[in-house]
Design a protein around this nucleic acid. Structure first.
Lengths: 206, 206
DNA sequence: CCATATTTATGCGGATTGGTATAGAATAAT
DNA sequence: ATTATTCTATACCAATCCGCATAAATATGG
């Protein structure tokens, strides 16, 4: 199979027989479904298609493995967020795109498992400070992206200066939070879509 | 100690040496701190000051015990919510009271453990349908209370009919959701207070 | 005082947990 | 080829998990 990126000098010994990013993908799904405590290393190794010692050797213990997966999903969602916010569209339309994508991701059948950060990292945050720190960092980055976008709107007179861009940013992530919670508790994607639209009016029209 | 309610005929055998409500109190704290999977029956029994068989005999298995604690916190918060919403105050002030109480509860030191439903029940919801159902029921009741309060505001011309009271209700619970998430991730109570005030302007002024 | 009923306390037991030790397999450098 | 190095696989470890079986303790009804 040898699916390495092949980009440069190989290391000395036996090469990996898996792609770390694909493994983190599988691992992330299990963690998102079952939570940090609920997912066993057997579950994770089985989903990734390899054995526990390989997982351990590549990513460290369970907490570090979880944080690796968390950072993967954080980087991806941050990239999509930045992409949507960079579009040359009114802010409402950009937010509509973001919420639509979030709803699709959070309520993807059959699990509608919500958001890994909101629905699993917060639970583990009390007993695992490292997880709390990683989640904080990701969320701070996302909120900063929102705040910058709102500030740009203010600068080009698309939005009034009050409420402050930082407050708008917090409200924007608040919507993502509640969408994740609601999706995980079974609210339908259609219901979430209409709620997001109604809320958008309140957040952006002023 | 014999702290029964003493209200009527005692049952036949040996009486309980604990108050179920007080036990659920201790149990709820442990569940809220560690989550459903993270809390062991040993933790719970130790916190409650009794042995596992007693817990099991009184409340059933771990899932049922968790649901009992969930319903306890649900009933209490619903009572406080109804009480605040029944006050003869402008809706913004009533919501301010509610958010202030929620922030105090969610970020109570030293744990700032957030909300049992938002931060632990949602995590267990995917693998434990009974927990999901219990959480749904509590949240539906709270949202219904909000919706009725907003509808009353519309009826007495305190708020315009649009956006619909149900949409406002969802936004009100969205604030509670994000406050729980943020408190659990370590955001300070003061920061949450100012955010709640800024958001209240957006939600209610229109 | 005896019989009945319920709750406590001790402790077992099979299953599962996270982590690792050890041995075998595969590749690169020499 | 040979050696060095890294990864894979099997199996094992102590610890913990949840649930229950059993027996002692404590109350009521007769």
């Amino acid at each position: 199979m040898r699916s390495d990126t092949e980009d440069m000098k190989r290391k000395r010994g036996r090469p990996r027989q898996f792609e770390p990013d694909a493994v983190l993908d599988s691992v992330r799904k299990v963690f998102t479904e079952k939570g940090f405590e609920g997912a066993s290393l057997d579950d994770l190794a089985a989903a990734a298609g390899l054995n526990r010692p390989s997982l351990y050797g590549a990513f460290g213990d369970k907490e570090q493995l979880y944080i690796h997966a968390l950072n993967q999903v954080g980087a991806r969602s941050q990239a999509r967020l930045a992409e949507a916010l960079a579009l040359a569209l009114p802010i409402e339309e950009r937010l509509t795109l973001i919420y639509r994508w979030a709803i699709a991701a959070y309520s993807a059948p059959p699990l509608h498992a919500g958001c890994m950060i909101v629905n699993t990292a917060t639970t583990a945050a009390t007993t695992n400070p490292a997880i709390a720190e990683a989640a904080r960092k990701i969320r701070a980055g996302q909120e900063e992206l929102f705040a910058r976008a709102f500030a740009a709107c203010v600068a080009r007179r698309e939005l009034p200066a009050e409420p402050a861009p930082s407050a708008r940013a917090k409200l924007a992530t608040a919507m993502l939070d509640t969408l994740a919670v609601r999706a995980r508790l079974g609210e339908s994607a259609a219901s979430l879509e209409t709620f997001a639209q109604e809320a958008l009016a309140l957040v952006c029209v002023i």
